[in-house]
Amino acid sequence: MAAGQSHSVLFVCLGNICRSTMAEGIFQHLIKEKGLSSKWTIDSAGTGSWHVGCPPDQRTMQVLKKNGISNYHHLGRMITKEDFSNFEYIFGMDHENMEDITEMRPRNSKAKCMLLGEFDPQKELTVQDPYFTHGSNKNAFNEVYDQCYRCCTAFLESLNL
């Protein structure tokens, strides 16, 4: 990143209360640790409207807090056509998200749209949706945190900041 240059990233999942907010909170934390907050615009959005205006899932917030990220705030929103000109990077969490992103993407968009999992050192392309894991996988939100942390860290490293 050249001196004075800024970047922007949007994380996208289905409802914008679990995976994308987890990634956004982690990324904000990593950027703050590097002293680069003023050089980044970071946000998240969903492809569906179920949770517009809602805060992140309480399980997302619990896992973020457990990992030292306690100052994260967000209200759910849907991805918009404007996001494709406002953000340099748009990361989907799974292939369905990417299909929706690709379908919405204007032809002249310069946004780099890809799976966040493309940066996973463990080669897990899909960030699994933990929302419906009530009791079946009590560790699902922790697994999403771990994967998003790996991916966000690797993405930052790829930029040679």
Rank of each mutant, 00 (worst) to 15 (best):
F84M: 07
K34W: 00
D120W: 00
Y149R: 08
C54R: 14
K34A: 12
C13W: 05
S6V: 12
S136K: 13
C113N: 06
T80G: 03
S20V: 07
N160Q: 14
N71H: 10
E82Q: 11
C113I: 08
G117Q: 01
T60Y: 04
V9R: 04
G92C: 04
A3L: 13
M61R: 11
C13L: 01
E103I: 11
Y72V: 00
F11D: 02
Y131E: 05
T126Y: 06
N160T: 13
F155E: 00
N71Q: 09
H95V: 15
Q122A: 15
S38Y: 13
I79P: 09
L161C: 10
N142K: 13
R19I: 03
L116R: 03
K81C: 10
C148Q: 02
A23H: 04
E143T: 09
N160E: 13
S136R: 12
L115S: 05
H74V: 04
C113R: 00
E143A: 07
I31G: 06
S8P: 00
N97A: 05
L10Y: 08
H7G: 08
V63E: 10
Q128C: 09
T41A: 12
S158E: 06
R107T: 15
K112N: 15
A23V: 05
Y72G: 06
V127Y: 03
G46W: 00
L75D: 11
A154W: 08
Q147R: 11
